[in-house]
Simulated assay, not measured.
Amino acid sequence: MSATKVMIVDDSFFSRTLIAETLQLGGCEVVGEADSFDSLIETYNDCKPDIVTMDIVMPGTDGFECSRSLLMNDPSAKIILVSSMKDEETEAEAKRIGIAGYVQKPVDGEYLLNVIKNILSPDTLYEQLIELAPETFNEAISQNITRMAKTPVSFEPMETFDVNYVSKGITTVIGIIGRYSGSMILDLSLETAEQIVEALLHRPSKNREEVIAMVAELANIIAGVACSMLNKKDKTFGLRVSPPSVFFNSSSEIASPNLKMQSSLAQTSFGPILLGIGFKKGAASWI
């Protein structure tokens, strides 16, 4: 089995040397080093590491900004924050960005190696979530539209999309937080939304604001029900939803730069509804 390849990002030569020797003693191979934001992406693309250790304090920027840029360059990058600072606020920001682990200086070699091992080990819980999520979210949209609008729902599978998707008119995005972070996308035409409102209220919609409010609430209910169903299957998911963001523009593009979305097309008597769901690893690798 080949050695784990590690890239070290730290503006301190002494810190890079200390971390490098610790890693090498543990059987890792240090394949690259960067001391600033300027050399970060080029070095990463050249050495293609399995793991990146990242200091918080960097000249002209910080480890958070470096990590965001690195994840935009490669969403699968696995980053461990290595810093003398460690508190709830910095930990929360690291998890929000998608940093895989956090080790405090002075670095304990055994602990750092254990974090690396944990990050690179197969994450069976994440794989379980990825397998369960599409069917569960489909079930949630089917249950709620059938219950509220008294109409059946069928589904057409769609290809996983990680490129831009052109909206049909109204797009709602709901963030999902918990052991794994993610997003749910609900997209439908204005005409479809208007027909749903009329079925629910037994009258035509009064204005566009009423239609958009209905779509936001429908998306919120679907996401909440689906997350509750997933939590019942395994409570360690700990999923919760954030307030919906609604975008109205028939030419809007939906993009998921950090997520590969699994999608399906719900066929209703009102019209088609796109449902997209995606999760990424992050907090689950923390120990």
Results as ranks from 00 to 15, higher is better:
M1F: 08
A3E: 09
T4G: 00
I8E: 07
S15M: 15
S15D: 14
L18A: 11
I19G: 06
E21D: 15
E21R: 15
G27A: 05
C28K: 11
E29Y: 03
V30E: 04
E33K: 10
A34Y: 09
A34R: 03
A34K: 04
F37T: 07
F37N: 12
D38N: 11
S39V: 15
I41M: 00
T43Q: 09
T43M: 08
Y44K: 07
C47A: 02
K48S: 13
V52T: 14
M58Q: 03
M58A: 06
G60A: 01
T61W: 05
D62E: 10
D62T: 00
G63C: 06
E65I: 13
C66H: 05
S67G: 08
R68E: 15
L71R: 04
D74Q: 05
P75D: 02
S76E: 13
A77V: 00
A77P: 01
I80G: 08
L81W: 05
S83E: 02
S84R: 07
M85T: 15
M85D: 10
M85L: 15
T90D: 11
T90M: 15
A92Q: 15
E93L: 12
A94L: 05
A94S: 14
R96D: 12
G98T: 03
G98P: 08
G98H: 12
I99F: 13
A100I: 04
G101Q: 06
G101Y: 00
V107E: 07
V115L: 10
I116L: 03
I116T: 09
I116E: 06
I116F: 05
K117M: 04
D123E: 04
Y126N: 08
L129F: 08
I130C: 12
I130Y: 05
E131V: 00
T136D: 07
E139A: 14
A140H: 08
I141R: 09
I145Y: 05
T146R: 00
S154C: 01
S154K: 15
P157H: 03
E159W: 09
T160N: 12
F161L: 11
Y165G: 04
Y165W: 12
K168R: 14
G169L: 09
G169D: 06
V173P: 00
G175I: 02
G178S: 06
G178N: 03
R179M: 10
Y180M: 14
Y180I: 04
S183P: 00
I185S: 01
L188I: 05
L190W: 03
E191G: 06
I196N: 04
L200F: 10
H202E: 12
R203F: 05
S205V: 11
S205D: 13
K206T: 14
K206H: 11
E209I: 04
V211R: 01
V211H: 09
M214E: 08
M214R: 04
A219K: 10
V225I: 14
A226L: 06
T236S: 14
F237Q: 12
L239I: 04
L239G: 11
S242H: 11
P243N: 01
P243A: 06
V246E: 07
F248R: 14
F248T: 11
P257A: 05
P257F: 04
N258S: 10
M261F: 03
Q262Y: 13
L265S: 01
T268W: 03
T268S: 07
F270V: 00
P272M: 08
L274M: 13
L275K: 13
F279W: 01
K280I: 09
W286M: 07
